[in-house]
Design a protein around this nucleic acid. Structure first.
Lengths: 212, 212
DNA sequence: GCAGATTATGACTTCATAGTCATATTTTAT
DNA sequence: ATAAAATATGACTATGAAGTCATAATCTGC
């Protein structure tokens, strides 16, 4: 947890510090990240970082928390997260992610890294929670889909989830790569390609998990 | 590259050193791995490690190479790797991986970590090559599947590959977790569960990518 | 415009470990 | 059996980054 001093800082400085930290951790990994560099990039002195946080680990953990909270706010504003069909969920999720990657590539990269356990045990606890929230929701969608007869009911929910998550995760990575390529505004053509990709994937999902 | 001294060592010592190194890197990550501990676990002095390798990085890179070569030997011995159907490929691949995880959990964990880029840029070059070999083969299976009419031909090969890989990777992780749980001989029941899981997954794949 | 509180700073200390090297031990060749 | 070559060892050095702290600058309320 950050110290009182950090909490009372004005938003602008807080954000500068957090983005500098996240950028450093994302680029170099926890061990290689240098507090000195983070301070430099945030435009403060190294000593200040230690007025804000207990130690390096504290700073790292708060970087994770900060990122999660950032996305929480984003998502709250966008999706109503009501009871959707799982295919809609994939569709809107993919689009949402695509937008986020374009707007906040750093935060998305960082989130993917800690979700996938790239920082060893460090971020495990916090990110496991996050994962489970998503998972719970997806399981609900699957159960509802079965009732609604849009999902085959001859298979275990857990297995269907595995299938769905596998496709989703890999696909997210793909979308990330594409988004990186067109740094600025994507062309009409690229947007169409993206759209086609997403829709084809939905088709594959539907075909696989759906009741045919 | 290891020094001449290391290459001339007897197999037993070489293996002890490599397994100690891999164990350390896998458990603690590159930066946190301590040469002293590796030496200790291999039953040699710290100085000896530096008679064998240029530096820490050299040792790490060779750990990756050694692991890849180990699996190459394994796989060569098992699968004929002829022209299979992609569903058979998934099936036999899953079983093969299951066996490997039980036999060499450490090496598999390590391989998964560096394949997924957990060591930052360090292992990137070597492991990208490995990935591409697999990918090339899988693309061939997809192309053949289309000809043979076991795979739908209304979709891009790359997209089908993405779909296939997503499912496969996530599934491998799941299998890993299960294999960890029954450390010793799996019970009859557990083996059946495993078998069921694999077969259900094949069904989902077939349904999704297949020509229906 | 002053005093007390808060925040900022970077030179300095501490600490851990990568990497060295002089010496000891073992192996090989004759 | 002996000398030369190869290998092993761990105390020692060098390095670099985390974390400290005394002091300076800034802010806040009166």
């Amino acid at each position: 947890m950050p110290k009182r001093t950090f909490i009372r800082l004005d938003e602008d400085k807080k954000e500068r510090v957090m983005r500098a930290a996240i950028g450093e951790f994302q680029a170099r990994g926890y061990e290689d990240a240098k507090i000195e560099d983070i301070a430099q990039n945030a435009g403060v002195a190294k000593g200040s970082i230690y007025q804000y946080f207990e130690d390096k680990k504290d700073l790292f953990l708060y970087s994770v928390t900060w990122t999660i909270e950032y996305f929480m706010k984003m998502i709250d504003r966008q999706t109503p997260l009501k009871d959707m069909d799982i295919y809609e969920y994939f569709l809107s999720g993919s689009r949402e992610r695509f937008e986020m990657i374009r707007k906040e590539p750093l935060l998305v990269s960082f989130a993917i890294d800690f979700t996938q356990g790239k920082y060893g045990g460090l971020a495990e606890e916090i990110s496991r929670e996050l994962k489970q929230v998503g998972e719970q929701y997806e399981l609900k969608l699957i159960a509802n889909g079965k009732k609604r007869r849009t999902i085959r009911d001859d298979m275990d929910d857990k297995l269907l989830l595995l299938f769905f998550q596998g496709v989703t995760e890999k696909f997210t990575m793909r979308v990330m790569e594409m988004a990186k390529n067109f740094k600025y505004e994507p062309t009409e053509e690229q947007l169409l390609e993206m759209k086609g990709l997403i829709e084809s994937m939905v088709l594959l999902l539907k075909q696989g998990m759906g009741r045919n």
